[in-house]
Design a protein around this nucleic acid. Structure first.
Lengths: 205, 205
DNA sequence: GTCTATAACGAGATAGAC
DNA sequence: GTCTATCTCGTTATAGAC
């Protein structure tokens, strides 16, 4: 009953299932793994998995909720500091980079690819994740421009959407090439583009 | 035997299979459809499909080859004109937009998500597709900057990789939200960023 | 909470007739 | 080139004992 009992003070079974399932979705997609994969790896039976998560849709939905909560905590943590907007954006990109360095795709980026095959509750949760990211970025961008830390034309929300789209796509490509530096180069360029007076980085000259 | 016989002057069976399979991969991913789906839709049996494409990997590889050839023709067509680099980039983005307006993801963008579950021949074909796109874009960007049509810091190849990544990610997100305009806004901003003296588009003022 | 056992179905693939 | 028939295996999911 208590969250710290049962597995002799270790992580509960439900959490171990979620941890492994998260990794499987991030690497193979929602249609690229099965309960059998999880059961084998954890040394339990498929029936046991169904006790914790009756259907695969239940498991998937919980995965997105947990991932979104974790992401929200990270964003709140960035806001807690008093970094400049540019630094906040760099830290934001580093969240993606850490996922990629673990050979994973963003959970919701992967599920966006699987989108048309997902049950409705999962779909809504995926788009909500992106909306929350866009809202946070929009705030940082608007504040940053107001403070003179950032400079860009147009609406902050459009820049936010560019950032989310480009970072997700950058992860996708970097993972296919197995070249994480591709992502870093892309992210650096995206953010540098928003910083005013960029003391002329090594141009073509 | 002749490519214009058998189906009473219609498209050959192999091509009809490829057309439908392409659509299925672009909307559901490589692990999100089966031979049974194709057989049902085309009114043939699964065994018939295996005659044309013995394994799903064979079918998948042929899909990528055909898609890449089609893409290469489009790029050659853009090069044939004498448009400015900026116009060429806009036309390039319009290829993606047309795919998206058909409610599809880029075939290779989708397969990039499925990458870790793909057999080796398909993996190489996917990365080759992206390399060809990057090479073409790199050429347009380098020439455009030389001609003064474009302006950007750093290496053309890095901008090319940002463009491919951002366009793929933009498609992914726009499709999840079922808002194609998200993609257009993102693409417009990406390209506008490369054009010198952008007569100050409606800024925050 | 985990197990055994099994249902019910779909997957990719093949043999051989027509 | 397409069919029927079948194989083998994997999939999600449930019933009921422990």
């Amino acid at each position: 009953m208590n969250p710290v009992r049962g597995q002799s003070a270790r992580t509960g079974t439900a959490d171990r299932i979620l941890d492994l399932a998260e990794h499987l979705v991030q690497t193979r997609g929602f249609n690229g793994f099965s309960y059998a994969d999880i059961a084998r790896e954890l040394g339990v039976t498929k029936a046991s998995l169904h006790y914790h998560f009756p259907t695969k849709a239940d498991l998937g939905l919980r995965l997105i909720e947990r991932y979104s909560e974790s992401f929200a905590r990270s964003l709140a943590c960035i806001n807690a500091g008093d970094d400049s907007a540019g630094t906040k954006l760099a830290t934001y990109a580093s969240i993606y980079r850490r996922v990629l360095n673990d050979d994973r795709m963003c959970l919701c980026g992967m599920l966006a690819a699987d989108y048309s095959t997902l049950p409705e509750p999962m779909r809504s949760a995926v788009t909500r994740f992106f909306e929350e990211n866009e809202a946070w970025l929009t705030g940082v961008l608007a504040q940053g421009r107001e403070d003179g830390d950032l400079s860009f034309p147009g609406e902050p929300v459009d820049v936010a959407r560019l950032l989310v789209g480009a970072l997700e796509g950058g992860m996708l490509l970097a993972r296919s090439f197995n070249e994480p530096t591709r992502f870093q180069t892309l992210a650096d360029r995206l953010i540098a583009d928003l910083i005013p007076n960029p003391a002329s980085p090594p141009s073509g000259c």
